[in-house]
């Protein structure tokens, strides 16, 4: 019986028919998607913190408004993604709990500090840029609610990327101090951005199954290469450099070659030893714990009102 269901399920996926929440699906598919989508949702919410760090210090009112809107967009992305995950039978509170207890992960990139205004440019250009590279294929995820959420998210992410690039472009035309600030930010964020695509293909054990289920469409290394190729060209427009002496166009491959990634650093950050892991998680836990009385009050009030309405009816 189970096998017959599984056959129908895989057949639908092969024919590019979307799986919807009420459809039968293998338990492993459901669990993998919950992990994938909630991890993405958490990344949006944690990702608000490094950029939120510069809202009160944005250097012009226009930049302040753009940054506020951007961070607000990220909160919105978190919201759609939590909702998409909820269709798989997990509540938002359960997902928060997994985040706060360290059971759920989020993108490691947000464990790096934002040290200057130029980081707002680089985060937009590289971090939103890498996110887009990862996420555009997810608009065709086999799971309907995730695919639909991603269409909307990707549209906004590409705005963010352009805004980030524009911040850097203005800095590149600015004073010597501004150009130094921008180059320093690129130097700090470049390698962590490449790590956003995840481990090398031969060390990424879940990938084959995920490809078969079409919740992953390209391998980590394919996407990473695509990202390097794009950035290596874009950085020329800015007149800055990427901090990699091995970065070189390879005519034969039709791609840029690039230097080795420090995977030891990657695993350290994943395991909690990045520069801001503790701050990020503490900030979320603090918001959650200090908000408990607010949520309790809202719930008590809603119940009271519902009762009054019932009594009146």
């Amino acid at each position: 019986m189970e096998q017959a269901f599984e056959q129908i399920f895989q057949d639908k996926i092969d024919r590019e028919v979307r799986i919807e929440p009420k459809d039968w699906m293998p338990e492993k598919y459901r669990q993998t998607l919950i992990r994938q989508i909630s991890q993405h949702a958490h990344s949006e919410i944690i990702g608000m913190l490094p950029e939120g760090n510069w809202i009160t210090r944005a250097p012009s009112l226009r930049r302040k408004a753009i940054l506020l809107a951007k961070v607000q967009d990220e909160a919105g992305h978190g919201l759609y993604l939590y909702s998409a995950a909820e269709t798989l039978g997990i509540s938002r509170d359960q997902m928060y709990d997994q985040l706060h207890t360290g059971k759920a992960k989020y993108s490691s990139i947000f464990n790096y500090p934002t040290l200057s205004w130029a980081d707002m440019g680089v985060v937009g250009w590289l971090v939103d840029g890498a996110a887009i590279m990862n996420q555009v294929p997810l608009c065709r995820s086999s799971f309907g609610p995730y695919a639909r959420a991603m269409v909307r998210v990707c549209k906004e992410e590409s705005f963010h990327q352009r805004q980030g690039f524009e911040i850097l472009y203005v800095l590149s035309k600015g004073t010597e101090a501004q150009r130094r600030m921008a180059q320093d930010a690129i130097n700090r964020w470049w390698w962590p951005s490449l790590m956003m695509f995840g481990p090398k293909d031969d060390e990424s054990p879940n990938s084959i199954q995920s490809m078969k289920w079409k919740i992953k469409r390209f391998s980590n290394d394919e996407l990473r290469q695509k990202f390097v190729d794009v950035c290596a060209e874009q950085v020329k427009v800015l007149g800055f450099t990427l901090p990699d002496k091995d970065l070189k166009w390879n005519e034969e491959r039709g791609h840029y070659d690039f230097g080795p990634i420090n995977w030891d650093e990657f695993w350290q950050v994943v395991q909690g030893n990045g520069p801001c892991n503790k701050e990020r998680l503490d900030a979320r836990k603090k918001a959650w714990e200090e908000g408990a009385w607010v949520r309790d009050a809202a719930l008590a009030y809603a119940n009271k009102k519902a009762k009054q309405k019932q009594a009146a009816a």
């Binding site: 919410i45 608000m48 913190l49 939120g52 809202i55 009160t56 009112l61 226009r62 302040k64 408004a65 506020l68 809107a69 961070v71 607000q72 909160a75 919105g76 978190g78 919201l79 939590y82 938002r92 900030a283 603090k286 918001a287 959650w288 200090e290 908000g291 408990a292 607010v294 949520r295 809202a298």
Partner: peptide, 29 residues
């Protein structure tokens, strides 16, 4: 109000207060 962004007690309300902050920055401008 913008100091709350990312730290609100409820995600929907975090969005709301950030939106209000954004309105005010727009008025200021």
């Amino acid at each position: 109000n913008s100091e709350w962004c990312g730290h609100g007690p409820i995600l929907e309300q975090d969005i709301a207060i950030t939106n209000i902050a954004l309105d005010y920055i727009g008025q200021a401008r």
